[in-house]
Design a protein around this nucleic acid. Structure first.
Lengths: 332, 332
DNA sequence: TTGTAGGCGTTATCAG
DNA sequence: CTGATAACGCCTACAA
């Protein structure tokens, strides 16, 4: 018994009147233990509410039964859902989750990875801030298995679970073009694979319809909370878009807010489309047209892949790409 | 060097040509170490990218630098914000967060507490599912410091950070009554302090205005995702409310969805008010009148109190109660 | 079937 | 200033 009052195996052994080894065997159903002895040990353990110390165990096994999760911010319901999916799978297997947020900052991401590895996590699930491996040598050199989720690094051989972001970009842009829009303001994120691929999809669709891309119509919004300033600035500059394509529903909220404040009607004067299809998007004013991405399922899948890596120690990487789906509502 | 490739202190000592003890002292700036020796050790450590194994450290110190967080679900942006607040404070102090979700299930809550304590967390921050300590003997008997957040257990001497939920109930109800409503459907949660206190506030306000409470107008919704069924059922039963008071913005989303689907105008036919003031509530259709609760700040405060408990080992409990604020918008 | 002993990686104590 | 050595709590050969 120490400060915190946790009983140790020694306490159990003493109470049961057996040796440490026997107590351990009895509790772990290991080797041959006399039924009576086992019972005595189990009773002693129960009486002392004994729980094995995971630190001692981990020290010996080189395993922590702990998984690090690193997303941009859990305040974005998109990642909250991803994390929930991961958690569902991992908790069932006795793993515990350590959560970190990068806030889209490469420096913070690197630091979080350092912390997580220093904690000796058994694996990592990461939504990488950037689409290049630069700066993450620590991650790639470690032998700790990891899976990218939502975003990945094209051209780098890793496990990942994403959705087809080029299709996302095309789906949204085509939809707007079909509705007669030609000046489409794209409020995009930047540096990560989703942003890059969606932009490629956007440009592909414009080209396919003979619309020449206008650089000033693509605005970078690093973090969704900056959406309001970004749309305000774009409007003040007189860019005159007839439609706005937002990187995520959270950004769309900011955009709708500003448009409402300025008395600009949606979709009559400016149409708005975005990506994610979060629960609230159906009840926004107006209900938001958005590209559905199965966040929860992506989390589930990523966790499964990671568990496989950890258990089977397999080397080959696995990639899963989900297909996005347009959900039409009143904002376009 | 073991499987995972982490260098150990032994490796560092060997490379630097000193003993384990000296290496340890050099790295921890402990005791007197010759400048030249220290430098050698630090260089060796760097070359091997040595990070102390927290399991070994923890085993010795009886500390894990790890805090358990237990909320109902991180998919509710309310708790996502609470957790973010906690994380901000804790990360700065080198603590790591282990996240668990109770999903409003007392059984799952108890199990999560068991897991967290078994993990030897240094402290816990909990949004308890129920307002009574029953079933949580494990928590109360442990000597692990904990702080309740968002919800608490009235009458039990613990640390907690909440908002004045009775005021929340009064604020919302008074507002509706002022607007002429007398049949107010209250879609409440249940069992937790927030639900109980808000209901008390609701009843106080009704009484103050001579409105006799009608039990059938209080519906229990255990989990916010069930809001749609609940409101549908209430309407089908012909309860004929002229206003709905929701336990949280997430529930209000479900309610608005159903009302919209049924072609019921808000607020003309039925007014809707709720609690939280999440970011999206300003852009719902219609913009939601809601009672603002400072979630992030509650998280920050809870984390601070917990750190104080852990560091100063003080026994006295601390209570913080935030004041809610009505935010009037178009749904009422 | 049971007990003894060694070691996982660190830190702290105590000699030297 | 430095180096053995003894814990921390657990598991597992190896002996008995």
């Amino acid at each position: 018994m120490k400060i915190r009052g946790y009983a140790t195996l020694k306490d159990v052994a003493k109470k049961a009147g057996v040796s440490l080894a026997t107590a351990s065997r009895a509790l772990n159903n290991r080797g041959d233990v006399d039924q009576t002895t086992r019972k005595k040990v189990l009773e002693a353990a129960k009486a002392l509410s004994y729980t094995p110390n995971p630190l001692a165990r981990g020290l010996l096994s080189g395993t922590t039964k702990t998984i690090g999760i690193l997303v941009t911010t859990i305040q974005n319901p998109f990642y909250a859902a991803v994390v929930s999916g991961i958690e569902k799978v991992l908790a069932a297997e006795g793993y515990t989750i350590i959560l970190c947020n990068s806030h889209e900052d490469p420096e913070a991401e690197r630091e979080a990875i350092r912390v997580l590895l220093a904690r000796r996590v058994d694996g990592l699930i990461i939504a990488p801030v950037q689409s290049k491996p630069d700066g993450l040598e620590l991650l790639f050199k470690s032998n700790v298995p990891f899976v990218f989720v939502a975003r990945y690094m094209p051209g780098v051989d890793t496990d990942y679970v994403v959705c087809d972001d080029e299709a996302v970009g095309r789906l949204a842009t085509e939809h707007l073009i079909d509705r007669g829009h030609r000046r489409i303001l794209f409020m995009n994120s930047r540096g990560n694979s989703s942003a890059e691929l969606r932009q490629r999809g956007y440009e592909q669709s414009l080209a396919a319809h003979g619309i020449s891309p206008e650089p000033s119509l693509i605005r970078t919004v690093y973090y969704h909370t900056q959406a309001e300033e970004a749309i305000s600035a774009a409007l003040d500059e007189g860019l005159d878009p007839t439609a706005v394509f937002c990187f995520c529903d959270e950004m769309a909220v900011g955009v709708l807010r500003v448009l409402a404040a300025r008395g600009i009607r949606v979709p009559e004067e400016i149409a708005v489309i975005s990506c994610d299809n979060l629960a609230f998007s159906a009840v926004l004013h107006p209900p938001l047209t958005t590209v559905d991405i199965p966040e929860f399922e992506m989390g589930v899948e990523a966790a499964r892949i990671l568990l496989n890596k950890i258990k089977r120690r397999k080397k080959k990487t696995t990639q899963v790409v989900f297909t996005p789906k347009l959900v039409e509502r009143a904002s376009t």
